[in-house]
Amino acid sequence: MEEGQPTRPDRPGPPNRMSLLSVSGVHTYYGNIEALRGVDLTVNEGEIVTLIGANGAGKSTLLMTVCGNPRPARGTVRFDGRDITRSATYDIIRRGIAHSPEGRRIFPRMSVLENLQMGAITGDPAHYEGDLEIVFDMFPILKERQSQRGGTLSGGEQQMLAIGRALMARPRLLLLDEPSLGLAPMVVKQIFNVIREINEQQAMTIFLVEQNAFHALNLAHRAYVMVNGRITLQGTGRELLANREVRAAYLEGGH
């Protein structure tokens, strides 16, 4: 579609595409605590969708529920038209969802190259070299540091590695959990630029969970706001950026 265009806040998402991920009426519990209280949400093919909300709102829980760990008590999760609510995590991942978990979680004692290779572990080895090339083009620093241990990278580099590792699995849907966590503002900017690039160049569908509402809303085609395990607001990124409640709760003061 209009993918090459310069992007302004109101990014016209690729319209009328099929929904790739749809979450409906999902309730998830941790013991007796109801972390998700009936969440409905869709991510269409080719879109960047973001979910913003405060600490403890249930954002990460939603991503993890999509991955089947924990499983929802009620409701359904559908990916690419198939019901994956009851599938095992590894099965869900192999269907084409890559999850870059909160806190990056790279393998500290493995080299950068090995970390990337771990991303491709369930995939077809035939694509490995080409995908590696793509990731190294996107993150030249990783190519430079390829034989260094993952644990010795800086926070930003680790985040790049985590995204690169997720991409090595050739997903159809990329789930990113707080990629800006604990990074310097300059680095955050860089990471968000890369996320946009991945979306535009590879037509990757991205579902992004963020606390950094300003950057996330600027980037996303559509966005949801989560409060206490419920979706309270939704709209295009620009709509939510202009929304008074959103401004008051997530934007003012911070930026």
């Binding site: 991955c67 493995m110 290779q117 590792r165």
Partner: peptide
Amino acid sequence: LPLGRAWEALREDEIACRSLGINP
């Protein structure tokens, strides 16, 4: 081999392993 890699990855971080589609 992938299995041996998965062993080592499991030692490093089980949660990351799950999110890479490894069956722990």
